[in-house]
């Protein structure tokens, strides 16, 4: 890990885009009580990432493939059996972590676990920004259906909201967001970037609008400030991003929640 490496503008923009998408997707994960599920799910990316590093293809594609396979697998089994989502994710997570550690080359393992955003080429950064943007647009389209299914699944069916399709779309957006985020903050800490901004916002927000906005802003701030600190101090970016997020969360505890 180099100290004081120069951070390019595309890299910073990628950090901001990842933070924004993680904040938005995370806002829904928290409301749907998927915090730990989402966190565990982020680790599922490891075998894909390991395979990409071993065979030299794009890490985003590796992570995205592994996550999508896990998400669709979990969704498929959950809708056909009575197994809990948490339990299924637990199964996928532990298997994936074991396989991931097995196939990731040892010298690449640290980067896979903690990420290295400074390593990303400008072109890859722009691609990542585009994907994050697409994830956010998809989320905003899904928002009404997702809120309805979150608050009242029965009403959603009555109002002809396509419940299962909405849920699958959400899981896919979640997989996409996590996959881009992982290239920046690594598998181990991506979960935190999804959870912490949302939980910071939830205590303070009165409306959904303010909740989502605050979560996105907290996500962007954690990612951008974290990456800058990492570049100056030599701390792995993933760790710095999480620590900035944690600081924001602690600061939010000092603010009296709105009633």
């Amino acid at each position: 890990m180099e100290t004081a490496s120069l951070i390019s503008v595309p890299t910073l923009l990628l950090a901001a885009a990842v933070g924004a998408a993680a904040g938005y997707v995370g806002a829904f994960m928290i409301l749907r009580r998927l915090a730990l599920v989402g966190d565990a799910l982020t680790h599922v990316a490891l075998p894909g990432l390991g395979a990409a590093l071993t065979f030299g293809f794009n890490p985003f594609l590796g992570a995205f493939t592994a996550l999508t396979a896990a998400v669709v697998g979990v969704w498929f089994i959950e809708t056909r059996t009575r197994l809990y989502l948490e339990a299924l994710v637990g199964v996928f997570f532990t298997i994936a972590l074991a396989v991931g550690i097995l196939i990731t080359p040892e010298h690449e393992l640290f980067e896979a676990l903690f990420g290295d955003i400074a390593d990303i080429t400008p072109l890859a950064a722009l691609a990542g920004i585009a994907v994050a943007g697409a994830a956010m647009v998809t989320m905003s389209r899904l928002q009404p259906a997702l809120l309805t299914t979150t608050i009242a699944p029965d009403l959603a069916k009555t109002y002809r909201v396509p419940v299962r399709r909405t849920e699958l779309s959400f899981l896919l957006v979640m997989a996409t967001t996590v996959a881009i985020g992982i290239t920046a903050v690594g598998t181990l800490l991506m979960g935190a970037l999804v959870i912490i901004p949302a939980i910071t916002a939830k205590r303070l927000a009165k409306s959904f609008r303010s909740y989502a906005t605050m979560s996105i802003v907290a996500g962007i701030s954690s990612a951008v400030i974290g990456v800058l600190i990492a570049a100056r101090s030599g701390i792995p970016p993933g760790v710095a991003v999480v620590l900035v997020g944690a600081t924001l969360f602690l600061a939010s505890l000092l603010v009296k929640p709105q009633r």
């Binding site: 409301l31 029965d154 939830k202 959904f208």
Partner: peptide, 15 residues
Amino acid sequence: YVPQRLTVERDFPLT
């Protein structure tokens, strides 16, 4: 449809 109840937590951020 007006259901009998809907469980909404106090701090669910939705007006």
